[in-house]
């Protein structure tokens, strides 16, 4: 049975994201929408973090590697009460702390990210620290599919099983599109599942918009069996607004007034 509250939260994340992107005339709404369901389920039911005490030592760590998609993370955090929602409308404006790539100056954001292929190594360092300190918090890292082109990711994908980092949970937002085209036409990642299996990760290959599948996979990721976990979340870039879905264009484009209104109607309907 679907958790209605996470579905409602995902809708709110998308509406809030749309608002920010429209007012800032910003890009990257496609990648922000593709991960909205993941964020909703994670922040509703899995990531143990107190918005009023976001630096508490026993919190779970969440690192967004695809920093260009920061709008839906900012929306998630503001809606959860990490900082005032009103601040979201300063996004990308002169003097705002809400940079257009995730910034660690924002409460609840662990690291700044903008250059791809960095966060997974840092996440491995965090997971290693937890192991060495016998701490029981988890580290979640969300990467894009395109950024798996970066070799640095594969250095940690090789190392994490060696270190038995079962407290490291990697999520791939596999929306099948990267900057200049379809992932399969740039560097085909298929079969991503087999690749991770060959690297000795425990793999969950799921529909990244299905909250039951997300919940079930994340539940299974809590098992401490000496094996790092990866959720391949098969998603649709621009998910939620039909004319944004599955197109390269909405990696770059900002909605005009008509598109903005149409997008609100579609998102409200879902």
């Amino acid at each position: 049975m679907s958790d209605l509250s996470t579905i409602k939260f995902a809708k709110d994340i998308r509406l809030t994201t749309l608002e920010m992107v429209y007012h800032a005339r910003a890009s990257h709404i496609g990648g922000a929408f593709s991960m909205a369901d993941i964020l909703s389920v994670l922040y509703s039911n899995f990531i143990r973090i107190d918005p009023k005490n976001p630096e508490s030592v026993d919190r779970d760590r969440f690192l967004l590697s695809k920093g260009h998609a920061c709008t839906s993370l900012y929306a998630t955090l503001a809606l959860k009460g990490f900082f005032p929602k009103e601040e979201l409308l300063t996004y990308g404006k002169d003097g705002s702390r809400l940079l257009s790539h995730t910034t660690h100056k924002i409460p609840g954001v662990e690291i700044s990210a903008g250059s791809l292929g960095h966060a997974l190594s840092i996440s491995g360092g965090l997971a290693l620290a937890a192991k060495r300190k016998s701490a029981n918090w988890n580290t979640y890292c969300l990467v894009s599919d395109g950024e798996l082109n970066e070799g640095s990711n594969w250095e940690m994908i090789l190392l994490a099983p060696q270190l038995k980092l079962d407290n490291l949970i990697l999520i791939v937002d596999y929306n099948k599109i990267q900057s200049l085209g379809k992932v399969k036409d740039v560097i085909n990642l298929d079969s991503l599942k087999k690749k991770f299996e060959a690297f000795n990760w425990e793999v969950f290959d799921i529909d990244g918009h299905n909250h039951e599948e997300l919940t079930s996979a994340l539940d299974q990721c809590q098992t401490k069996n000496g094996i790092p976990k990866v959720i391949i979340a098969n998603t649709i870039k621009g998910k939620g607004v039909s004319f944004m879905e599955d197109t390269v264009l909405w990696h770059y484009k900002s909605p005009d007034e008509n598109q903005y209104k149409e997008a609100i109607l579609e998102l409200e309907k879902n």
Binding site: E110, I111, H118, L120, S121, I122, S123, G124, G125, L126, A127, L128, A129, S152, M156
Partner: peptide, 8 residues
């Protein structure tokens, strides 16, 4: 990157 994580 690991060093950054450990230092955090």
């Amino acid at each position: 990157g690991i060093a950054a994580g450990l230092a955090m």
